[in-house]
Amino acid sequence: MKVTLRVWRQKDGNSQGKFEEYAAEGLNPNMSFLEMLDVVNEDLIEKGEEPIAFAYDCREGICGTCSCMINGKPHGPENGATTCQTYMRSFKDGDVIVVEPFRAKAFPVQKDLVTDRAAFDSIMQAGGYITSRAGSCQDANAIPISKEIADLAMDAAACIGCGACVAACKNSSAMLFVSAKAGQLNLLPQGQPEKDSRVVNMVSAMDEAGFGNCTNQYECSAACPKLISEEFISKMNRDYLSASVKGLFSAKAL
């Protein structure tokens, strides 16, 4: 099969970018989208043109590195799939495919289709953890956790940090990511001591990073390759409200 690509090319973060058109020919429907880009790049190298930079690593849908906006949807047409797990059989022969980087103020483009998602790390550094010193932990079975809670925490933990939620949100909001990370830990008994400070600190780091606000449209959840539910956003809102109200009345140690 054969398709036409309209790809965003941008030399680096300081340059202006523009769309370039490339013909991708001799494709196999069982190729992944990234393998198709590999083929295009080999052709470009052959022609002496610089290959398209795109983010990739594991190519099995778990590392969260790949991040293309394909025909206006993060990761392409399939639901619950990353770019690397999108296959050419999802397109028709002769299609024109528009490929852009994930765009947001908090995710500056570094080159072509590669965006900097370090803002997610800064949110995690602000509170996305349970403080637990190696060697100081009690037995793993000391606190039973109901299967329902463990499963729900796992649903949140499935987040691969790819940023599709931000890319899909018309406001570039990171609420789904942050709520998945905070939600996982806030659900678990181990996460309770830091529950309030965690949600408050992560949300303020999120705000500082320049993400937009949630308008409850849930494009994030629809674009999420792991289909993480917007319910976690609701939970984060609840946790945030409760932390703020508690903050008003809590006793302070001297």
């Binding site: 953890y129 037995d139 793993a140 039973p144 181990q190």
Partner: peptide
Amino acid sequence: NIIDQCVALGVPFAREYGGL
């Protein structure tokens, strides 16, 4: 010890219905 540490960090390991 690794399992203890990971559970303490919030790793959502699979659990039985009894919570273990």
